[in-house]
Every structure is written in C-alpha cells, then in structure tokens.
Design a protein around this nucleic acid. Structure first.
Lengths: 219, 219, 219, 219
DNA sequence: AATGAATGAGCCTTCATTCAT
DNA sequence: CATGAATGAAGGCTCATTCAT
C-alpha cells in the first residue's frame, strides 16, 4: 500500500448509491452531507473505531437509528469520506497543474501540484486527515472501495514525475516508484503535526520546496 | 505535538533478563516481553482498539486473563511499546551521531542521524510503526506517559539542526521548528509505505538524501 | 450513619405513567419500572454484587445490554431503588402521623408512625429490604445519592421524638440521638426475620408496642 | 431465618479440619488466625464478595495462593468467622447469666444476657458484624455450616425467655417466638449504627433497658 | 424521515482457584 | 509453607445494527 491520496470528490458516490439500488436516500440530501461532515470531523479527531454512531447522530441532531436511513453502515460512511478526500485532492491538484500556461516546465507542474496538494490537504482537513491517518488501517471492504480512486491519483503523480524525469528535470538516479510515495508521504504527514492556525501554510510550502530542492537536476 | 520518535528498542530488557541469571522474578519477563512483541505486531497491523486482549493472549499462548498478571491494562501495554519505540530510536540515533570522528561536520551528524533513524524505524518495525501510526491518537493517559521520551528525542534533533544552522551548514532561511517535524515526519511516514522486504533500505536512504539535498547551504 | 428509612414506595411512578395517557416517552417507563421491581427483588434476596445484570434482564425478559437503554449502570438501579424505598416510607409515615385528629398526643403520633413504618416496610418488602440490608454497604456514589432522603426521614423522626420529650411523654432520661436509631433499627431489622406470610403483622406491631412500652413516662 | 446469633467460639473448628482429613494445616497456626482476623475485618467493612483473596493475603503479608494452604476456600474462611462469632457470643452470654448468684431471678438473667450480648457484639466487632450484616445472605453451604451454632444460641435465649414467662416475669401476652428474634434483632442491629468509639456502650445498654422495660409484667 | 427500544456479540477486566517448584 | 504464574469462568458495559411505528 503506497502513500498517496485524495481527489475528484464525490460525484459518483450518488451513482454508487443508485447502482446498489437499495432503499437508502440519494445524493444531495442535506442530512447526508451533514452526517459526512460530522463523521469526518469525529473520525479525524478520535479515530474510526473510537467514534460511535451515537456521537455522530447526536452532533447531527438525530437519533442513532436514523443515520441508517442515509447510510447502510458506519463503514460506508468512512468509505465515502475517504473517496471524497482522495477525489477532491486529485481534482484540485490536476486543475492547478493543468491550468498552467503551455510553456510551463515539468518542474513548474510538480511545484504547482505540490503546493496544491498541501492546500487541499489542509483546506479540507477533516476529510483528508481521516484519509491520511487511517491509510492501511481501514477495514478490507472500505479499502477496496477507495483503492481505485487512490490508484488514479497515484498514477497522475507517477506521470508528472515520469515526464519530469524524461525531460531531464530530475536527478537521473531518482526512481519514480520510490520518489512518489516519499514525496506524497512527506506532504501527507504534515497533517499530523502542522496546524495552519498556528503556522503559515505558505511558510510550510516554502520550507518543503527548499528541502526538496535536491531532487532537481543541477543546471 | 510534533513528529519524531523511536530506536534500538527493547532487545535490552530481554538481554537483561538473560544476562542476569537470576532464577525467578526475571523468568516472568519472558512472558512479559513476549506479550509486548506480540501486541506491538498486532497493534501496528490492526490498530490499538481493533486488537483484542484475547488475540494477544492467543498469539502468546495463554488465556486473556493471564495477560493481566503481567500488565495492568491494555493501555499499559501500549504505553510500554511506545516508550520502547521512542527510547530505542533515540539511543540508536544518538549513538551513531556521537560515535563519529571528532572532525565530523554538523552535516555529517545529521546524515548519520537520518540514516540511523530510518534503520531503527525499519529494524524494529512493530514497535516503531505502532508509535508512528498512532501519534496523536493514543489515549490521553498513554500520551502523557510517552511525552517526556518524545520531548527528549525531539530536543536532540533540535540541537543537531541548530548546531548545523549556527555553523552555516543549512540554508539560512530554514527554521528549525518547521524543519525538524518536516524531516522526522517524512522519515516516519515511510513506515506506512516502505517494505524493506520488497525494497532496499539503502536505496531509500539514498533517495531521501538526494531529495533533501536542498537543505544544505550551497558552497 | 444511623438507622432509618423507607416507605409507600414507587407505585407512584407507575401510576404516574398510567395516569398521564401520554403515548410515548412514558411507555418506556413500563420497562423501567419493571426493571426496578425485578432488581429490587433480586438485590434483596441475593445481594447487590451477587446479582448480575444478566439475571435482571432475563427475569425482565430482555437482553442484558438492553437494560442499559433505561439505566446508566447497575449502581444507578440500586440508587433509584433506595430512593424509592426511603421516600415512600417517609411519605407513608408522615401521612399517617399527620392525618391524626388535632387532639392526638405526641405519643399517638409516634405509635402511628411506628405502625406505619412497619407496614411500609413489609408492604414494599423488595425495595425496603434492599435498603435496610445494605445500609452502610452500598457504593460511595450511591450512598451520596440517597443520603439526603435518609436525612430527611431521620429528621422527621427526630422531631417526633423531640416533641414527645418536650411534652413529657417520654422517660426524661432518654436521649433522642440514641433512641431514634435504636427504634428504627429495631423495626428495620424485622425485615431480616419476620415473614408476613407466616406471621401476623399486627401481632408483630403489638409485640413491639408492648416491648417498647418502657419508653413512655409513667403517669 | 430468624435473628439470633453468635457463640461458643472456634473450639472445634480445628476438629472440623481434622475430621475432613484433607491436607490443610490444623488449628493453632498463627497464620491461620491472622487470616481470620484480617478477613473478618475486611468482610465487615466491605462485604464478602467485595473482599478479594488478594486483599486478605496482602494484609496478612502473603501471596493469594498461599492462603489456600490454610483454608480450602474463601467460603470456608467466612464459615469459620461466622462460627467464631456465634459461639463466642453464646459462651459469653451463657457465662454471664449462669454465674449469677442462685437467688437471681429470670429477669436478672435476661438482663445479664442482654448486657453480655451487646458487650460481646461490640467487643468483637469484626467477627460479629460480619455475622450480623450477612445474616440471610451467605452462600447456602456456609449457612448450613453455621446453622447448628445459631440454633444452639437461639435455644438458649428461648429457654431464658420461657423460664421468665413461666415465672410470670414477662407480660403474659408476649410470645417467645416473636419476642426472641425481636430482641436479638434489635440488639444486633446496633452493629450498624452504634460506634463505641463515639458513644458509650453503657449508655446504649441503659437506653435499651429503659425502652424494653415494657416487656416485664407489672408488679 | 426519524425514533424508541431492543438485540447480541464482543470487549476489557476481575477473581477464586490451581499447581509446579 | 509459600510463591509465581496461569486458568477459566464470569461480569459490567458498549455499540453497530435492526425494526415496528
């Protein structure tokens, strides 16, 4: 299981529910989203197992049993949170890299992606930190559910790095399969120790860019 | 709560029991150590809450109740695992940095510490990954118990980096309070994705040193 | 901790639920009251610690876990039983003493209280004997909960006896602080050995009045 | 189960152990008596079930397992405590009543017995209060063990009262089967509320004699 | 859509007891 | 005599989940 995450956010979680055709309510239910938000907050603070359905329900303002009208299980809630985290990060990162002017170099793209990943991470912290903190510790079934989303995002970074390597922008002795999880893991780990309300996110980004400066090939 | 941890861990107490040929009292330590090893393995794989005392006991080959002869609670087991992880890592890192020849530069020391931290991390993976994965998610009481050990290790790294900064070895715009958790967090995160049985640890170290090359001041 | 307690107990809350034809909320009270009744019976027969939640639940016809929907803990159940015992006894005793005609003497009041205390005691035996048997042996927390109720009832008897003493109805050398617990203790102890189904309660009362006849001042 | 208790003290508890012929040590072991004393203290303070073998052992200064060298079970300990309580009280009461001068009246005897019972009760409080508090709540097997001792003591009181009744010393309408448990119950209950370190035992006796003055036939 | 009530499986922990040494 | 270590049964309690209303 490698380190990478987040993106593309939730558009087909509704489809998913539709596909599975079961009773539950669809997409846009306000309650549904509220439950996800509340759950993401609790999961990221206390952990998945440590959070009870009753806690979630209480914070949403309903009874524990009522949550089951919107979700089939606690795991399904987690599953959707993780998907949202991965997809939304992916979308943000890809957008910021692709919207660069045509003359942007592979290095420019990577830098943009890096910055954007960190911004998405800390701008959506309940969802993303749930995702980051529980990587490799979620129930089998949930993992399988998010895996495709993760893979897609990983692939995007692989491509970014491959392009840069092919263009001679990276130190030639670097290997993408080692570099990608290393970079993403470093970024993701900031979720554990960096508090945007106490430190400046731009400072963090600057520090990371300085530290990682060694990856670029010397001119 | 910043990111840092681990080393050399725990073999001592086993050796200790072995060395001291004392008949009784220490013999129990065998069970004790066995429980810790087994628990560390299960915790790091499944999570603390997800691991049951019965699982631990079964793997050790005893009854669940029997574990309580050796430990007061499940939390105490976790607490000791974390302490072992942090302290052993600290010892290993400090030893490797301090045993350098006198003419070693601050940069040499940091490089040695980095390498040693990673080796300790992956050489004692059950203990260290329990520590790394659950940073910030352990029960209050346990956290308080390990906190002093964490702080000591953090301080050691702070000093290492401050010395280097004062000696002009680091980029002058880097700040230690940001750099230290960033570096340690990056290293620690490898616990989640790097598998020494599938990749080469020296390759990982080399890649990290290349990536982090940007932190040193240019000659 | 002195000796005193109990009365008229608990039928109220049932009546209350019945009276108020409210559809919901109170319907749960049926289970609640049933649990209290069953628990009181088991506690008084076997003891608090000796009684298991599973036993209570089984006799009520539910699962052990279900009891926790109605009560927070086993101790809370005990706590409510004791309160019901003490309060109901108090109410019964006070009512019977206060409803006497205006020309009733202090001695008449005490006799009425005595009789009423015994009737409450044996008319609500599960609750009251739980209270009597465990006096001074209940968990700290529970004790604190019932203490105010006990104190109130004790005070009532103190007043009864003081009035009689002041009116010259009692032997002048008797002291209320010694007399009150002695009398109430004697009455309460009947809970242990007197079985109304085998002996006649009025006979018991008559015997007690004869035995205690020494407390009144000789004409 | 009626109310009555205590006497004759322990003489054949040794015989008992001998009879049962099992491994355990006999009679006079210092440890044995120490265990009984400690256990009696803990039982009377905390209750039987609430007291653990480890607590007893710790207070005696040994390991839990070691207690089993002296006693076969926790219940056996309780059993012996109860026997000691009942027998020692019986002996004290009988002695004080029988040592009266020949011209002593039945009433004199009863008064002496009453006084002596209270003195034994509060002079041996750990044993006697264990006995008094747990009346009717001890395990079946233990109850059967003490029952003969109880019966013997009850019979002694029955005889005392019958003699007095036959001699016209008591109110003729009193019945012994009701009077005896009532008297003994009243006395025993003092165990719960009377603290000899805070009140004077002679005052208590005087108060009781005044209160109970109604039982004697009027001259 | 939501709730009150209950289920049932499982968890951590306690504790009397056993037994080889 | 005594202990260290372990057993195994049980206990209080939690919690995801269900379901009739």
């Amino acid at each position: 299981m490698s380190d990478l995450d987040i993106k593309n956010g939730g558009q087909d979680s509704a489809q998913q529910a539709a596909r599975s055709g079961r009773k539950k309510a669809q997409s846009g239910s306000v309650s549904r989203r509220l439950i996800l938000d509340v759950a993401a907050g609790l999961f990221s603070e206390q952990g998945f197992t440590e959070t009870t359905m009753r806690q979630i329900a209480a914070k949403v303002g309903m009874q524990a049993g009522s949550v089951y009208y919107h979700f089939e299980s606690k795991e399904q809630i987690l599953s959707e949170i993780l998907s949202i985290a991965v997809r939304s990060t992916y979308m943000a990162v890809r957008d910021s890299a692709e919207k660069l002017p045509p003359q942007a170099t592979p290095r420019d793209k990577i830098v943009a992606a890096l910055r954007s990943h960190l911004q998405a991470l800390h701008g959506n912290i309940h969802y993303t930190s749930t995702n980051v903190k529980f990587l490799g510790q979620v129930p089998e079934e949930v993992e399988q559910n998010v895996q495709p989303d993760r893979a897609q995002y990983e692939d995007y970074w692989n491509q970014l790095l491959h392009d840069a390597l092919a263009a001679g922008a990276l130190q030639p002795n670097l290997s993408v399969p080692m570099l990608r999880p290393l970079i993403l893991g470093s970024l993701n780990r900031t979720v554990v120790w960096f508090d945007p309300s106490r430190g400046n996110l731009d400072d963090l980004i600057a520090t990371i860019l300085t530290l990682f400066n060694g990856m670029w090939s010397r001119p």
